[in-house]
Computed example of a mutant assay.
Amino acid sequence: MKIWVDADACPVVIKEILYKAAKREHVQLILVANQYFRIPQSSLITFLRAPKGMDAADNEIANKLESGDLVITADIPLAARVVEKGGLALNPRGEIYSEENIKERLSTRDFFDDLRANGIETGGPSGMSARDKQAFANSLDQLLRKYKNRA
Score class of each variant (00 low, 15 high):
residue 72 I to F: 08
residue 63 N to H: 08
residue 78 L to T: 06
residue 56 A to M: 08
residue 68 G to A: 09
residue 60 E to P: 01
residue 53 G to D: 15
residue 67 S to T: 11
residue 69 D to H: 03
residue 61 I to F: 03
residue 67 S to P: 11
residue 75 D to V: 06
residue 51 P to W: 07
residue 67 S to V: 07
residue 69 D to A: 00
residue 75 D to K: 06
residue 58 D to W: 02
residue 54 M to F: 14
residue 81 R to E: 00
residue 83 V to Y: 02
residue 74 A to W: 14
residue 83 V to P: 04
residue 56 A to F: 10
residue 56 A to Q: 12
residue 77 P to M: 06
residue 74 A to S: 15
residue 52 K to P: 14
residue 66 E to K: 06
residue 76 I to C: 11
residue 58 D to H: 02
residue 66 E to A: 11
residue 66 E to D: 07
residue 83 V to R: 05
residue 79 A to F: 04
residue 53 G to Y: 13
residue 78 L to I: 01
residue 64 K to M: 03
residue 74 A to T: 11
residue 59 N to Y: 00
residue 78 L to E: 05
residue 82 V to I: 03
residue 53 G to F: 12
residue 83 V to W: 08
residue 54 M to T: 15
residue 56 A to H: 10
residue 64 K to W: 02
residue 83 V to G: 01
residue 52 K to F: 13
residue 58 D to P: 02
residue 73 T to K: 10
residue 72 I to T: 00
residue 62 A to V: 03
residue 65 L to H: 02
residue 80 A to Q: 05
residue 57 A to G: 13
residue 81 R to K: 09
residue 67 S to L: 04
residue 54 M to S: 15
residue 83 V to H: 03
residue 53 G to V: 10
residue 58 D to L: 07
residue 56 A to T: 11
residue 65 L to Q: 08
residue 55 D to S: 12
residue 70 L to E: 09
residue 60 E to C: 12
residue 73 T to A: 03
residue 73 T to F: 05
residue 61 I to R: 01
residue 77 P to W: 09
residue 74 A to E: 13
residue 71 V to T: 04
residue 70 L to A: 00
residue 65 L to T: 02
residue 55 D to A: 15
residue 67 S to W: 09
residue 52 K to D: 15
residue 78 L to V: 03
residue 72 I to P: 04
residue 51 P to F: 05
residue 73 T to H: 11
residue 54 M to Q: 13
residue 76 I to L: 10
residue 60 E to A: 08
residue 77 P to F: 05
residue 53 G to N: 12
residue 64 K to F: 00
residue 65 L to V: 03
residue 55 D to C: 11
residue 65 L to D: 08
residue 61 I to W: 00
residue 52 K to R: 14
residue 75 D to P: 11
residue 82 V to R: 06
residue 62 A to I: 02
residue 51 P to Q: 10
residue 60 E to G: 03
residue 73 T to D: 01
residue 58 D to I: 06
residue 65 L to Y: 08
residue 80 A to L: 03
residue 81 R to G: 00
residue 71 V to M: 04
residue 54 M to Y: 15
residue 63 N to Q: 09
residue 69 D to Q: 01
residue 72 I to R: 07
residue 77 P to Y: 06
residue 67 S to M: 11
residue 78 L to F: 10
residue 71 V to A: 04
residue 65 L to G: 07
residue 69 D to V: 00
residue 65 L to E: 10
residue 60 E to I: 15
residue 53 G to M: 10
residue 73 T to N: 06
residue 81 R to F: 00
residue 74 A to P: 12
residue 64 K to L: 10
residue 57 A to R: 12
residue 64 K to A: 05
residue 81 R to T: 01
residue 79 A to Q: 09
residue 77 P to G: 01
residue 62 A to S: 09
residue 73 T to Y: 08
residue 74 A to Q: 15
residue 79 A to K: 07
residue 72 I to N: 00
residue 62 A to M: 07
residue 52 K to Y: 12
residue 53 G to C: 12
residue 78 L to W: 08
residue 69 D to F: 04
residue 51 P to N: 09
residue 61 I to V: 09
residue 74 A to V: 13
residue 65 L to C: 07
residue 59 N to Q: 09
residue 69 D to L: 01
residue 57 A to D: 14
residue 73 T to M: 07
